[in-house]
Computed example of a mutant assay.
Amino acid sequence: MDGTTLAHWDGSGSTHTLDLPCDQGDDRARANCGGMPLVHVPAGVTLTVRARNAGVDVSGVRGGLSLSTVNGDVTVRDSGTKGAVQHLVTRNGSVRATGLDARGVAAETVNGDVDLLCTTSPGTLDGVTRNGSVRVTLPADAPPYTTDTSTTNGRSTVDLPAADSADHRHRLTLRTVNGDTEVHRG
């Protein structure tokens, strides 16, 4: 953690919580309001971030991700791990990931886009929004997927080979109401 940021760590064992107070009446905590603290995370650690009225920006974290906010974007770059399910959630913001490594992905928002560029072919991938588009790019050598895409006011494009009806190893679900759903090989 950046030494100039007022923060307090709680917890023991494998779970620790970082509290970043934001109190306009406290000169020490005022700098945290609207700021973006830099936190270094060791490889292999599952990172959980819960925020409100703020974006979550993760880069170069090699581990499981559970990221959520309200009124902000969730942005991931070159992160994740092949053996983990990555949870990326916001409301009133977009979910954007490039270089995402995962066994499974669950990405969701209400008012915003879901844009995912995966470096691996996850076994399951769910992308959901209500007012926005869902766009997924998988590796060029991605296997066939069982796909379920839907939109009410938009178009669906699937540029992947379809899996046999008995093959459920790779499943992709993309949903929106007002926007497009797209999945492509990279």
Rank of each mutant, 00 (worst) to 15 (best):
Asn111Leu: 07
Asp78Lys: 03
Ser156Ala: 11
His168Trp: 09
Gly80Leu: 07
Ser150Val: 14
Arg30Ser: 08
His170Tyr: 13
Ser79Gly: 05
Ser66Ile: 09
Gln24Ile: 12
Thr90Asp: 00
Asp126Ile: 09
Pro21Val: 12
Asp26Arg: 11
Thr149Phe: 15
Val74Trp: 01
His87Ser: 11
Ser94Lys: 02
Val128Met: 13
Asn153Gln: 02
Val128Arg: 14
Cys118Val: 07
Leu172Asn: 13
Gly80His: 05
Leu174Ala: 06
Thr98Gly: 10
Thr98Asp: 14
Thr173Val: 14
Thr15Met: 00
Thr147Cys: 12
Arg155Leu: 00
Gly104Asp: 12
Leu160Tyr: 00
Gly64Met: 02
Gly179Glu: 01
Ala7Arg: 14
Thr120Trp: 12
Asp113Glu: 15
Asp27Ser: 15
Met1Asp: 08
Asp26Trp: 06
Gly72Asp: 08
His184Thr: 09
Gly25Asn: 15
His168Ala: 05
Thr81Gln: 12
Arg169Asp: 12
Pro122Arg: 14
His8Thr: 11
Gly93Phe: 02
Glu182Asn: 09
Gly55Gln: 02
Ser150Pro: 13
Gly55Pro: 09
His170Cys: 09
Asn32Ala: 07
Ser68Pro: 02
His184Leu: 08
Thr152Pro: 05
Ala51Leu: 06
Arg103Trp: 13
Arg175Lys: 13
Gly93Met: 05
Thr152Ala: 10
Leu116Phe: 00
Gly64Ser: 10
Met36Gln: 15
Leu18Met: 02
Leu160Lys: 03
Val136Tyr: 05
Gly11Met: 00
Tyr145Phe: 14
Thr109Ile: 02
Asn71His: 10
Thr75Leu: 09
Arg30Glu: 12
Leu47Gln: 04
Val61Ala: 05
Ser165Gly: 11
Gly60His: 04
Leu18Asn: 06
Arg155Thr: 12
Arg103Cys: 13
Asp57Ile: 14
Asp180Ala: 00
Ala106Cys: 06
Asp27Gly: 07
Gly55Thr: 01
Ala29Ile: 07
Val85Ser: 10
Ala140Ser: 12
Val61Cys: 09
Arg130Pro: 01
Ala7Lys: 15
Gly3Arg: 15
Thr149Ala: 15
Cys33Ser: 08
Asn92His: 09
Gly3Glu: 15
Leu67Phe: 01
Gly99His: 00
Gly34Tyr: 04
Leu20Asn: 06
Leu18Val: 08
Ala162Met: 00
Gly80Thr: 05
Asn71Met: 09
Leu125Gln: 01
Pro161Val: 11
Arg52Phe: 01
Arg185Lys: 12
Ala102Gly: 14
Ala51Asp: 08
Val70Glu: 02
Leu116Thr: 01
Ala163Tyr: 08
Arg185Asp: 02
Gly127Gln: 01
Pro37His: 06
Leu125Lys: 10
Pro144Lys: 04
Ala140Gly: 03
Asn32Phe: 07
Ser59Lys: 07
Asp19Ile: 14
Arg103Ser: 15
Asp57Lys: 11
Leu172Pro: 07
Leu160Asp: 05
Ala166Cys: 11
